[in-house]
Design a protein around this nucleic acid. Structure first.
Length: 262
DNA sequence: CGGAGCGCCTGGAAGC
DNA sequence: TGCTTCCAGGCGCTCC
């Protein structure tokens, strides 16, 4: 679930809940979400420090600390970041709980534990972010073309590859391709300049309202709002939507609006 | 290099 | 009803 818009919402949660506040307590309820750091070291390195900047790149969320390491968070498919009162009952999927300030808690909650938390110094942060392409929210048209230029495969696979563009997930990729009227299996190299422009504008036009909403909104006027329908039809042309597996992922598209590769 | 397949985890839904 | 299997909005790895 968490794609760029969700992680941007978590960034705002981090900023409003914990930024500038002292970390009083670090409770690791399930060490299975910790990567390369023990519960003891996480506690030792963070307790007593304050969270400073809240940054996001693609689907990575970075919590900086004053003169300390950076907490890096990735939410996999089911993760979220919640601000709660210390008195609120814990959710069974609260894996790590940071008590900040008086009685406030920042909770890393995740059912499936596919990703989790890392603790990194500057070079560690750089090593992770160097593997990421430009952020999909802020990349300009020139950077977008540059990111796609080296690609030989299908366009959906390129959009999903975080080292090409950072932040798009399966839902967004389908939504953007539908909006751009491009079949997900089209080869990137075959796209005309006009088609790449359409794709870029579709990405911006999809991300802006999704970030405002904090997630990809399941509006009926969007493809996303139809993909769970039993007899799903295109919101634009009413053609029955097609489902298949493209780039190894469940993919939905409109055969009417998004003409086949060939 | 691209892309398919698998594994990491969990739990809800579908199948028998 | 109960047990089994499949599948999911992510991603890293191996293999062809």
């Amino acid at each position: 679930m968490p794609e760029l818009p969700d992680v941007e919402a978590f960034r705002k949660v981090l900023a409003s809940c914990a930024q500038g506040r002292r970390i009083q307590r670090v409770e690791v309820r399930d060490a299975g979400v910790l990567h390369g750091v023990s519960a003891a070291r996480l506690r030792r390195e963070l307790a007593g420090r304050s969270f400073t900047a809240a940054e996001r790149h693609g689907k990575w969320l970075l919590a900086r600390t004053d003169d300390g390491p950076t907490l890096m968070m990735h939410f996999g498919m089911t993760g979220e970041l919640v601000c709660a009162d210390a008195a609120d009952p814990p959710d069974p999927h609260d894996r790590v709980v940071f008590t900040v300030g008086r009685e406030r808690q920042l909770r890393y909650r995740d059912q499936r534990k596919l990703k989790g938390l890392w603790l990194a110094d500057e070079s560690g942060v750089a090593r992770t972010l160097d593997r990421q392409g430009p952020d999909a929210m802020t990349v300009d048209r020139t950077g977008f073309d540059a990111a796609l230029s080296a690609r030989r495969g299908g366009v959906k696979s390129a959009l999903l590859d975080q080292s090409v563009l950072a932040g798009l997930g399966n839902l967004l990729a389908d939504e953007i391709l539908w909006r751009a009227r491009l079949h997900p299996a089209r080869r990137v190299r075959d796209l005309t300049d006009g088609e790449r422009g359409r794709l870029y504008r579709a990405m911006r036009g999809t991300l802006r309202p999704a970030v405002a909403a904090g997630h990809v909104p399941p509006r009926r006027s969007w493809l996303t709002g139809r993909r769970d329908d039993t007899d799903a039809v295109c919101p634009r042309c009413a053609e029955p939507l097609r489902r298949g597996r493209i780039a190894g992922r469940g993919t939905v598209w409109c055969p009417g609006c998004q003409p086949d590769a060939s």
